[in-house]
């Protein structure tokens, strides 16, 4: 009698745990993507309505004047300030870039390493993104090749960066990869760089995958999309 009760309770527990695990996998693989797509769309809408209200700067600052004395307002933590487009990942690939790289920020889009350069500035504009889950923004990261375009729009200017080399694998503590002149990139002097980071292997966290790019062209938003995004 009591053996029967113990066995029954034990088997019920096993079924419960199994169901929990299945539910978690559904949440992790499917539901986070739904949430992230929704959140990213909301962030892009926020950006576009903000940009629609603000006057467009007549011209982007000329490259030599990037360290102008009137420093622009700092980005607000956890808020979007730009959109990123990578044609290699698909013509419709568009994600918001938010300030900081905290867990909650990266659930809504790509995260800008606080303290690194702004898009187009001298230094390193460093951005992290999920490779898997939360919409899989950087799922195709290893497919990046030298010359691929990474296009960033900050509301006034389109910045077109060019990937410099194939993705580089490193350890999580290698913070020098987001330095102003990133170590391992092959860049040797100051410049306008972009760094993308994501996890490696695809479902693990033992390493990081890094891609570097340098600024190739800028274009005021009033002149329309850059040719890389023409479909």
């Amino acid at each position: 009698m009591s053996v029967r009760l113990v066995v029954r309770t034990f088997s019920e527990l096993c079924i419960t745990v199994g169901a929990l695990i299945v539910l978690f996998v559904v949440y992790f693989l499917f539901w986070t993507g739904v949430k992230a797509a929704d959140a990213a769309e909301g962030e892009i809408d926020t950006l576009q309505s903000r940009w629609a209200r603000e006057p467009v700067a007549p011209a982007p600052p000329p490259p030599s004047a990037s360290t102008e004395p009137s420093a622009p307002a700092p980005y607000r933590d956890g808020k979007p300030f730009a959109t990123m487009h990578i044609p290699r990942f698909g013509s419709g690939w568009e994600w918001p870039v938010l300030e900081n790289t905290e867990v909650r920020t990266l659930q809504k889009g790509l995260g800008h390493y606080s303290g690194t350069a702004r898009p187009g500035d001298t230094g390193n504009f460093a951005v992290a993104g999920h490779r898997r889950t939360y919409g899989d923004p950087f799922k195709d990261f290893p497919k990046l090749r030298p010359g691929d375009a990474v296009v960033v729009n900050d509301g006034t200017t389109w910045f077109t960066y060019r990937i410099a080399k194939r993705p580089y694998r490193t350890v999580p503590t290698d913070t020098a990869v987001v330095d102003p002149v990133p170590r391992g990139s092959g860049f040797e002097s100051d410049g306008r760089y972009l760094t993308l980071t994501t996890c490696e292997p695809e479902w693990g966290s033992s390493h990081r995958l890094i891609a570097w790019a340098h600024l190739d062209a800028t274009r005021p938003v009033s002149e329309g999309k850059p040719p890389e995004l023409a479909d």
Binding site: T101, L106, A128, P172, T173, D174, T175, V177, W203, S205
Partner: peptide, 18 residues
Amino acid sequence: FGDVTVDGASAGGAGAGQ
């Protein structure tokens, strides 16, 4: 799975930034 940043911290927490 959420560790996508280089942050110099231990692998326990997901990307606390720089």
